[in-house]
């Protein structure tokens, strides 16, 4: 005797739920695999936040609402673009004005320290601080010390005394 509930719709439903089960099993497999892989990756090397390279600069920049961010790196490269974005996040609320060296403070993130120092010399700025990641903060004395932290003001006084 044929099953009363048997219908073409039921077959279609069974096919759909079988496919759903297949996708769910596939998902679970890949999610578990991905999680285990990430646990191993994080055990080998902890998460690196490129913005950490800029920590501490905000104390020297003081209350300046905006600072220049000069780079000779290719920003189409994702890592370089990430570094700029993370620097902006860490230094917030200071706004980073890309490749504008006309501000009181300019952060240099160049391919080499020599390239950064050359550019700093060209614009007549004073390097204030360099860190082990090659990030250099420079101060433009021409732009005054309106927003600078006290340490920078003292630094600029020393520089002006040394100047002939």
């Amino acid at each position: 005797m044929p099953n009363k509930n048997f219908s073409f719709l039921n077959i279609r439903k069974q096919i759909f739920f079988t496919l759903t089960a297949a996708v769910l099993i596939l998902n679970l497999f890949f999610l578990t695999k991905e999680t285990i892989k990430m646990v191993h990756i994080r055990q080998r090397a902890p998460y690196t936040f490129l913005g950490d390279r800029f920590r501490g600069l905000e104390t020297l920049i003081g209350k300046a609402p905006i600072a220049g961010y000069y780079t000779d790196k290719n920003l189409d490269d994702k890592v370089n673009a990430m570094q700029l974005a993370q620097a902006q996040l860490i230094l917030t609320p200071i706004i980073l004005d890309l490749n504008n060296t006309g501000h009181e403070f300019v952060i240099f993130d160049c391919t080499s320290p020599a390239a950064a120092l050359k550019k700093i010399k060209d614009i007549g700025a004073q390097p204030l601080k360099a860190n082990r990641y090659g990030i250099i903060l420079a101060h433009n004395p021409d732009r005054g010390t309106a927003y600078a932290a006290d340490s920078v003001k003292t630094f600029d006084k020393k520089i002006s005394r040394q100047s002939p």
């Binding site: 990430m38 936040f49 913005g51 993370q86």
Partner: peptide, 8 residues
């Protein structure tokens, strides 16, 4: 766990 892999 997935979220914690990318804390930022």
């Amino acid at each position: 766990a997935q979220g914690r892999f990318y804390p930022y």
